[in-house]
């Protein structure tokens, strides 16, 4: 009940903010709306009882990625005018509307088979997910240790690459 209300509120905020990101001409305001959208998505994670994901979303997206993006906006000075659409927007609009219709249709029409699982009566239990995620990732047999290491290497490569790209000659 509470989670449902939260879902509706955050879903509406997320969609409106995402539309704002696309429609807003002022790039800085678009970035702020993007932050709002990230926040709403964090709320959605909360309503999915994914507490760790919600916090990770706030930490990484709102704290790091949005700051990076705003830095990018500031360093490239086309803030006021530079977020217009290109010539292909009508066709893109048609394609995206069609895709959205298709996605929504598929999502609604598919039988997700949730009932069968729900009869196992496991869904109502809301437990803290943090240690469970740690178990899922670091488990020796079924875990994601290799992807984790690859992710770490990816981040390192990204950091070095970013420094190498932007460094003054």
């Amino acid at each position: 009940m509470g989670a449902d209300i939260a879902f509706w509120i955050f879903a509406v905020i997320a969609v409106i903010a995402a539309l704002g990101v696309v429609a807003q001409r002022n790039l800085f305001r678009a970035a702020l709306l993007l932050v709002l959208s990230f926040f709403a998505v964090a709320g959605i994670y909360g309503s999915l009882s994914a507490d760790f994901m919600a916090v990770a979303q706030v930490l990484v997206y709102m704290g790091a990625i949005s700051v990076l993006i705003i830095f990018g906006v500031m360093l490239t000075k086309d803030v006021q005018r530079g977020n217009s659409f290109n010539r292909a927007w009508p066709s893109a609009l048609v394609v995206c509307a069609a895709l959205m219709g298709l996605l929504v249709f598929v999502f609604i029409d598919t039988d997700w088979n949730t009932d069968m699982v729900q009869t196992g009566a496991t869904i109502a239990e809301d437990k803290p997910t943090t240690s469970a995620i740690a178990d899922a990732i670091f488990d020796k047999d079924a875990g994601f240790l290799l992807p984790l290491e690859i992710g770490a290497a990816l981040i390192l490569a990204a950091v070095i690459g970013a420094i190498a790209l932007v460094k003054d000659k």
Binding site: V21, V22, L27, G82, N83, F85, A92, L93, V95, L103
Partner: peptide
């Protein structure tokens, strides 16, 4: 949740296809 995800995805795709500014 899936419908929300689809809507957000389509909005993002539209923006990514039509924006002129790379940061956008």
């Amino acid at each position: 949740y899936l419908v929300l995800s689809g809507i957000l995805f389509a909005i993002g795709l539209f923006g990514a296809l039509t924006k002129q500014n790379v940061i956008g």
